[in-house]
């Protein structure tokens, strides 16, 4: 039976959609690479090997290298507690984990300044002991951890809830210890969801601008991440430099999208397999 629009309507709607996506997504992406290479490969390469750019890349990698594992372990712990047990305040906890997503990154940065800045009690104590958090690397790492906080937990909780806990119970009945159950049954079952969460965390960690901008202090070669470095170069009208650094981040975004699409495809396949299984079971019952 005909349950779709006529051919011209379909064609017009598809064309409109593609035009919209073309202007809003493809053109900006193309512009990044175009501008980066507008003065040739030599200048592009030169902009990337520059000392300050290199320092920014290093700092970005450090921040991501700390934030990602921290949020990974947190996400797994939170998902284990939430998806495997019934306890009071569970829905409140789930809401609180999502909180960083509903806060403006600038407000997030401000909160850390208020917490660790020189005017606060903690900040005063830290200053007295010569420990600097705001306008230094620890502040950047903390702000990054904050803005990427929910990603892993958010991927894992629904996945683990959907999978149920019968396999883990089976492992325990067979004499496995808690850790053995976790490593040999739970983790392999959620590995794709976990990877998905890690990719999203990493992409956001390396690209975060607002929150990091507030706590960084913009000290060149010291507390600038790649996005902050891009801003400085751009404001100095060094467009080739700015877009060269931006192109690294854009490449990272493309890689993220590619891996994400692959992982989604894997999850979908796993899901379809289990769907087919339930289908078979249902048919068998009927």
């Amino acid at each position: 039976m005909q349950t779709t629009e006529s051919r011209p309507v379909r064609f017009a709607l598809t064309a409109l959609t593609l035009a919209f996506l073309g202007v809003f997504l493809v053109v900006p992406l193309a512009a990044v690479f175009w501008e980066a290479l507008s003065k040739g490969w030599d200048l592009y390469a030169a902009a990337l090997v520059e000392y300050e750019a290199w320092q920014a890349i290093k700092l970005t990698l450090i921040a991501a290298a700390i934030a990602v594992p921290l949020n990974l372990v947190f996400g797994v712990a939170a998902a284990w507690a939430i998806a495997r047990f019934d306890f009071r305040g569970k829905s409140l906890l789930t809401t609180l984990i999502d909180l960083p997503f509903s806060v403006s990154p600038v407000v997030a940065g401000l909160m850390y300044v208020l917490l660790f800045g020189v005017n606060s009690a903690i900040g005063g104590w830290l200053a007295a002991h010569d420990i600097q958090i705001i306008f230094a690397v620890p502040g950047i790492v903390l702000a990054t951890v904050f803005v990427t906080f929910p990603f892993v937990a958010r991927e894992l909780i629904p996945l683990m809830q959907a999978q149920g806990q019968e396999e883990e119970q089976a492992a325990l009945v067979l004499g496995a210890s808690g850790w053995q159950t976790f490593w040999r049954v739970t983790l392999p079952n959620v590995k794709w969801g976990l990877l998905y969460g890690v990719i999203l965390t990493n992409a956001r960690a390396m690209g975060e601008f607002g929150a990091v901008s507030v706590v960084s202090g913009h000290i060149r070669g010291e507390t600038n991440t790649i996005p902050l470095h891009v801003e400085i170069l751009y404001n100095e009208y060094n467009f080739v430099g700015a877009f060269a650094c931006a192109s690294i981040l854009a490449l990272l975004a493309l890689v993220t999208l590619a891996v994400k699409t692959y992982v989604e495809w894997r999850i979908e396949r796993q899901h379809t397999a289990s769907l087919i299984r339930t289908q078979q079971a249902r048919e068998a019952l009927a």
Partner: peptide, 8 residues
């Protein structure tokens, strides 16, 4: 837009 850093 989720993957591309906002500054870029």
């Amino acid at each position: 837009p989720f993957a591309l850093p906002t500054a870029v």
